[in-house]
Each structure stands twice: as C-alpha cells, then as structure tokens.
Design a protein around this nucleic acid. Structure first.
Length: 469
RNA sequence: GCCCCGAUGGUGUAGUGGCCUAUCAUGCAGCCCUGUCGAGGCUGCGACCCGGGUUCAAAUCCCGGUCGGGGCGCCA
C-alpha cells in the first residue's frame, strides 16, 4: 500500500486509511471520517464487521446496531462487496484475534467504531472479477474488467511500480542533463522503413500515427537541445501476437549530442542501475505484494537484484559465434532470432548489450565507420541492442550525421530521399555527431515485476484483437 | 503471414460416446450462530460458444464459424 502520510484531508474524508493504520496509537479515541471499498462484510446479527480498503491501506470498521441509526446499519450490513462507503467513527484498539497455541501474538491493530455511515455507491453482483477471491481469473476476462482487476493488490502494486520506474528513470536522466521533450504523433511519412504504420486522415491529407520519435528527437538535438528524452506512445500496425508485443506502447527514448554508441550505452546502464537501486531502496513493499500473489499461484517470487556495472558487451560477431558453438544455425548477416537469444542467454541471463550489428540490418539513420568490418568482411554499424535474457529491451546507436551518407543510405535501402527532406534538411547546416536509444517501458517492467506478459503492466493494452476498453 | 492448442454456472475447474438430472471451489441469495478476522454451519441459485453432421445415444466424435491461448516471423 502506498505511503499517504503527507496527504491532505478532502471533502469526503479526514484521514486516509493508511494514516489511521500508521498513527493508530496517536488517534485512539479521535473521531475520523474514512472512505473506501467494502472488501468484506461479515455478521448478520446485531453487529457487523466491514473490512474497508482505500488506496493506502485496510482497516476494520465495527458496527453495532445499538450505536447507530438502524436503517443505516442495515444498509451497510446488506451492501454488496466492493460498494464504496463513508464511515464516521472513533479510532479504537482492535480486540486481538484468537491465535493457535505457539503462534506469536499479533501486533496491536486499530479499528473504527462506527457512529454514522453512508453507502456512496452500491456495487452490482456478482463481480465479474473477484477482488480477493481464491480463483485465478484469465487475462482476457481481467482486461475486459480492468477497472476491477486494478483493485486487486498485486495488480495495483505493479502499476505503482510502473510509475516508480518512470519516475526514477526521469530523475536519472535529468541528473545527467537530459531534458524532456514531446514529439508529434501524427506524421506525414514513415520514420523508418520496415514496420507498418496505421494510416489516418489529417483533415484532407493522408497521414500516419508515429511509430517512433526517432527522427524528431534527432532534430531536437540538431537544433541544439544537446540532451533530450521523451516518454511517449508509439504505434505499429504489425499483426504480431506474442507476450511482448503491443500495437501501442510507451517508448522511453533519449538522444544526446557529441555522443557515440558507447556513450549512450553508458547512460542506459547507469539509468537501469539507478532504477533498480531505488526500487530496492524504497519499493520492496510493492515487490512483496506482487510476490505474495505469485507464491499463492505456485510461481517463483521475483527478486530485485541490482545489476552490476558495466553490463556485458557481446558484439554481433561474438554473438554469432556463441550461437554457432551452441549448435544454432546462423551465418554472419542473419538476424539473431529468439531461439538464438536463448543460447546467448544461457551465458548471459541478465542485461547485456549486443553492439556492432551489420549495417545492412540497421535503419538508414544508423552511423557506420567504413573501417569497421565484420569477421567475413561485411560493413559493421554503430547500432546496438540491449537484451535481458532472451528479450530485447532496447535498440539504439550512434546516428549518421553526414547528410550525403544519409541520402546514400536511403537510396541503398530503396527509400526516396525526397520523402525525407523534412529530416535530412536538419543535417544540411552543421550537425553534431549524436546517439540515442529507445527502450520499451513495459518490457523493462516485465523484468522488474516478473510479469510473463506485457499486458500485465499496461493499463489498457492495445493488441491485434483488442481496442476496448 | 505461418504452425499448434483450447472454449463447461459470474469466476476458476472435473469430464476421453451411455455411469451427466454434469464435479469441485469461489461467488450470489437466504437462514442460524458469532467481537468476527482465510470466520463457521445449513438451504438454495447458476453452465456444456454458435451452426451443421455421424450415432439408438454427443459436453465428449467430424466439418464450418466465432472468440481465446501458445509458438514463430518482425520488433521495443
């Protein structure tokens, strides 16, 4: 549950439940007004126990028919689970539960002895997704009812972790001098070859949803912003159907002037190290909530292990050798596919960079040094990937800043330079060498939370067959 | 785009041609008891994805559809 110690009272409550739980001894005997979801309602006689939950904690409300208006008592007692209620009452020490012989006595807990109450909104029954039920609901049903799924503790914790990861990532980049930008998501032409774009009409002009902020963050750097980052959506019209792909996803992008591929790999590993360190320092309570659920499902708990710096660098040429030695069929110039990554991951299960890919496999904007050739003589590039185990997290590289080479690369890849003048014009008046990367936020979250599917860590995922809710 | 698999109450499941008037858990409704606390006890409610076919007989076998899942490709 999140820390609410600094939260101000609102029109509906004087305290959060978390504040009462944490300061129960100071509040003993005080009247408080609390709001929350009625998680369970027990008792059909002259008393009732309501386990209340808000975003900050749980507390038991104790209702006695003699102590309050009888009509209200009955209304609360017969309310459906997950109805929202407001209670006014006095903080009291809870009677300790009976414990089995030999079990430790629990710490003192607090409850509210209710004097007045309101049902704010009655829940319908039955719930399509149980909040605390001991049944494992399928992902599809959960996503159809994400608003209820989010009330489940471990799901809620995962989205708090998501917010933390973005916060710590921002903090780190800002500390290294990066500034946040926003690039357009409605664009006139493809920013890279390869992936399919979603077409749309921009008034009377055909346009597309942006697949990447790539070209725009470069233009920002060319314009003198030096170091920029963007956290924003990217759209890809690919009909993939896997645990790690969505058609709309949040990309965490950086671009920095006067940097090469090695420099931005450094930024990335320091940022990931910072994120993991901060989570280990501040947020293990959230990881615990996630693990409690995992264990209840018979799954292994996730461990937040702060990765060692620097991350291993396995060049493309080395990676090919590892795959070949591991019995995989691959030649220099082939893409490293998922089953190849499995072989590499056997030796490098954690984060590792894969730098120096063949130029022929990288987009036109990636830089290459004519003197850098692979083991079979093919042209190498300054493009790299970051993988965690078998999964690709990032792709990045040093960018081509020589406009004539850029135009030649476009022609080599059968793209028309005339379509990219909005971009290449940015390089005609003096361009700094620069580099950057794009990181899939949900994929990083999968690693941190041990989620087996990106959809777990995306609020309302958009995939091949899902556009609602 | 390719390959494989699945669909049973609100939710999660058992079921392998007749033993199915379909199992269990959870839920929901009601009652009893109770400062309960994973509450407990009792009673009840609620389902075989759709359309064809095979068969004396189909939740079960076959065909088509719809929806879902997994893997690959491609990517972040």
């Amino acid at each position: 549950m999140r820390d609410s110690s600094g939260w101000e009272p609102t029109a509906f409550r004087t305290h959060t439940i978390g504040q009462v739980v944490d300061n129960g001894s100071d509040l003993l005997g005080s009247e408080v007004t609390l709001c929350g979801y009625a998680e369970t309602i027990r008792g059909r006689g002259a008393i009732a126990f309501v386990m209340m939950r808000d975003g900050t904690g749980h507390i038991q409300a104790f209702l006695k028919k003699d102590n309050m208006d009888e009509e209200t008592f009955t209304e609360i007692q017969s309310a459906a689970r997950e109805s929202t209620i407001q209670i006014i009452g006095v903080v009291a020490q809870k009677r300790p539960p009976k414990v089995a012989e030999g079990e430790p006595t629990p710490l003192p807990e607090y409850e509210i002895q209710v004097e007045k109450a309101n049902v704010l909104s009655m829940a319908g029954t039955p719930l399509p997704v149980g909040i605390i039920d001991d049944v494992n609901v399928g992902l599809d049903i959960r996503l159809d009812n994400r608003h209820l799924d989010l009330r489940r503790a471990h799901v809620n914790a995962m989205f708090q972790l998501r917010s933390k990861v973005l916060q710590y990532g921002r903090e780190h980049l800002i500390s290294e001098g990066f500034q946040e930008i926003n690039s357009p998501k409605i664009i006139a032409s493809a920013s890279e070859g390869g992936t399919n774009l979603f077409p749309m009409m921009y008034f009377d002009t055909p346009a597309f949803l942006s697949q990447s902020p790539q070209l725009y963050k470069q233009l920002a750097v060319l314009g003198g912003l030096e170091r920029v980052f963007e956290i924003g959506p990217a759209f890809r019209a690919e009909k993939h159907d896997t645990y790690r792909h969505l058609n709309e996803f949040i990309s965490f992008d950086i671009e920095g002037a006067w940097m090469n591929d090695d420099d931005v790999m450094g930024v990335q590993e320091r940022m990931i190290h910072y994120i993991w360190s901060k989570v280990a320092e501040n947020d293990l309570n959230l990881i615990d909530v996630v693990n409690e659920y995992k264990i209840s499902q018979g799954k292994d708990p996730v461990v937040v292990e702060v990765p060692q710096l620097p991350f291993p660098r396995i060049s493309y040429c080395e990676a090919i050798k590892i795959v070949q030695n591991g019995g995989g069929e691959i030649d220099w110039g082939d893409d490293i596919e998922s089953h190849h990554c499995d072989l590499i991951a056997e030796n490098h299960p954690g984060f590792h960079f894969l730098p120096r890919w063949p130029m022929a496999m990288k987009p036109f904007y990636i830089f290459h040094d004519e003197n850098e050739k692979g083991v079979t003589g093919g042209q190498l590039s300054r493009g790299f990937d970051l993988n965690y185990g078998r999964d690709e997290m990032t792709s990045g590289g040093q960018r081509e800043h020589r406009v004539d080479v850029l135009n030649q690369n476009l022609r080599d890849m059968e793209l028309d330079p005339a379509d990219f003048t909005f971009y290449t014009d940015g390089f005609r008046y003096g361009a700094p060498p620069h580099a950057g990367w794009g990181l899939g936020v949900a994929r990083l979250l999968m690693v941190l939370t041990g989620a087996g599917n990106v959809r777990e860590v995306v609020l309302f995922p958009r995939d091949r067959s899902r556009v609602t809710p």
